[in-house]
Computed example of a mutant assay.
Amino acid sequence: MKIDTSLAPPSTCLGALGMPGMTAYFGLLDVGALQDGETVYNNATPVKGPSNYLSLLVRRARMEGIVVFDYARRYPQTAQDIPARIGASRIKVKEHVVSGSTDDFPEALQMLFRGENVGNLELA
């Protein structure tokens, strides 16, 4: 899929309209069956994975995987829908833009591992 900067700025095309955004979109709406009026918060705190699987039973929750490529035929329509939802404040996008050049890439990359970014991290 080509980046269409008429839909959104390049940083949004890489994040909310890229694989991270498509995965979240299909995961929430199709797999998670999010309904109108429900709100989702993304907790950036590291959470233990399958070792806590018994808490799924106690909370009557479920865990299900998603392969975003299974939704490839829907990418073009979703690339139109996500910007509309952003414009209507139904999706909130956080982007962390670091000004610099390719010389600043190693330090910007380390920000990911130190957890110093909020949202999509871009070096511009």
Score class of each variant (00 low, 15 high):
2 K>I: 13
3 I>A: 13
4 D>P: 11
4 D>R: 10
5 T>P: 02
6 S>R: 14
6 S>E: 12
7 L>Q: 10
8 A>Q: 09
8 A>I: 06
8 A>W: 11
9 P>Y: 02
9 P>W: 02
9 P>V: 04
9 P>A: 14
9 P>N: 13
10 P>S: 12
13 C>F: 01
13 C>I: 01
19 M>H: 06
20 P>M: 03
22 M>I: 04
22 M>P: 00
23 T>W: 06
26 F>H: 10
26 F>L: 08
27 G>S: 07
30 D>R: 14
30 D>G: 07
30 D>P: 01
31 V>H: 11
32 G>L: 04
32 G>N: 04
34 L>F: 03
35 Q>Y: 00
36 D>G: 12
36 D>Y: 05
37 G>D: 07
41 Y>C: 00
41 Y>M: 00
41 Y>F: 03
42 N>F: 07
42 N>K: 01
44 A>H: 02
45 T>I: 10
46 P>F: 10
46 P>Y: 08
47 V>D: 01
48 K>G: 10
48 K>D: 12
48 K>Q: 12
49 G>I: 06
50 P>E: 03
51 S>Y: 10
51 S>K: 09
52 N>E: 05
53 Y>C: 03
53 Y>D: 09
54 L>M: 11
57 L>D: 08
57 L>V: 13
58 V>Q: 15
58 V>T: 15
58 V>W: 13
59 R>W: 00
59 R>I: 01
59 R>Q: 14
60 R>M: 00
63 M>I: 12
64 E>R: 13
65 G>I: 12
65 G>L: 10
66 I>Q: 03
66 I>P: 03
69 F>L: 06
70 D>T: 06
70 D>G: 02
71 Y>H: 15
74 R>Q: 11
74 R>D: 13
74 R>H: 09
75 Y>R: 01
76 P>V: 15
77 Q>H: 06
77 Q>N: 10
77 Q>I: 07
78 T>G: 13
78 T>A: 15
79 A>D: 01
79 A>Y: 13
79 A>I: 08
81 D>Y: 00
82 I>M: 08
82 I>W: 02
83 P>T: 08
83 P>H: 09
83 P>W: 06
84 A>I: 04
84 A>M: 11
86 I>G: 11
87 G>P: 14
87 G>T: 10
88 A>P: 01
88 A>Y: 01
90 R>K: 13
90 R>Y: 00
91 I>T: 06
94 K>T: 13
98 V>T: 09
99 S>I: 00
99 S>L: 03
100 G>K: 06
101 S>K: 12
102 T>N: 12
104 D>V: 12
105 F>V: 11
105 F>S: 05
108 A>L: 02
108 A>G: 02
109 L>P: 05
109 L>Q: 10
110 Q>L: 11
111 M>D: 08
112 L>K: 07
113 F>H: 15
113 F>Y: 15
115 G>V: 04
115 G>E: 05
117 N>E: 04
118 V>Q: 13
118 V>T: 14
119 G>W: 14
119 G>F: 14
120 N>V: 08
120 N>D: 09
121 L>N: 09
122 E>W: 12
123 L>A: 07
123 L>N: 05
